[in-house]
């Protein structure tokens, strides 16, 4: 399953790039200028990310190096092992709904300590790729129109995150094995 889909998905990004460039040229867009402008926004965003990533690296690093994570692992391992989650992704599950930049920091930390092609690394990438910053979306979207009562939006979106984590675990095992 891995090789065939990997070949197809490896083409998605290059194909999108070519389609976007051709469509833009057809519409007489100044592609070079627009690229530079967009890239400039990217530089700005990256600079804004630095404090978030440092904040998360410090907290997660202390949590791991002090041995708390090991203790927590021992407590939670029956539950997590029963579900099949490696304990490395626990901080990601907790932080993901709150802040995208912080979640990026957690994923980056897992990738650099466990390796991008380890099970934890792959699972964390899939979880990051398949979930959203739920609290941000709800706060910004509902706040923009002045809504105070959100019916079942919050519990349902959080339930969606939880289902998403389980689905990510299932999909990661399906595509990469354990």
């Amino acid at each position: 399953m891995m090789t065939a889909t990997a070949q197809v998905t490896a083409l998605i990004v290059p194909a999108l790039v070519v389609v976007a460039l051709l469509a833009a040229l057809l519409r007489k867009v100044d592609v070079f200028e627009e690229f530079v402008r967009g890239a400039g926004e990217g530089v700005k965003l990256s600079l804004q990310l630095i404090p978030y990533i440092v904040a998360i690296f410090v907290a997660v690093g202390l949590f791991r190096e002090s041995g708390v994570l090991t203790v927590l692992t021992q407590w939670l391992s029956p539950v997590l092992t029963w579900l099949g989650f490696p304990v490395d992704v626990l901080p990601l599950m907790i932080i993901r709904p709150f802040n995208n930049a912080a979640a990026m920091g957690v994923v980056a930390d897992i990738l650099s300590t466990r390796g991008p092609d380890s099970f934890s690394g792959r699972l964390a990438s899939v979880m990051q790729g398949s979930s959203e910053t739920t609290f941000y979306v709800l706060t910004v979207y509902l706040g923009a129109v002045g809504i105070k009562r959100s019916l079942h939006a919050l519990p349902l979106c959080l339930l969606g995150d939880l289902i998403g984590y389980l689905a990510a675990l299932w999909a990661t095992v399906l595509f990469f094995g354990r």
Binding site: A6, A10, P116, S125, S131, G160, A167, L174, F176
Partner: peptide, 22 residues
């Protein structure tokens, strides 16, 4: 950035996972 063999190999599982959740 972390030097994965195939960085985009997660596209299919991530899409599958979010479709199921959705």
């Amino acid at each position: 950035n972390a030097g994965a063999q195939q960085p985009s190999a997660i596209i299919a599982p991530a899409f599958l996972a979010s479709s199921v959740a959705l």
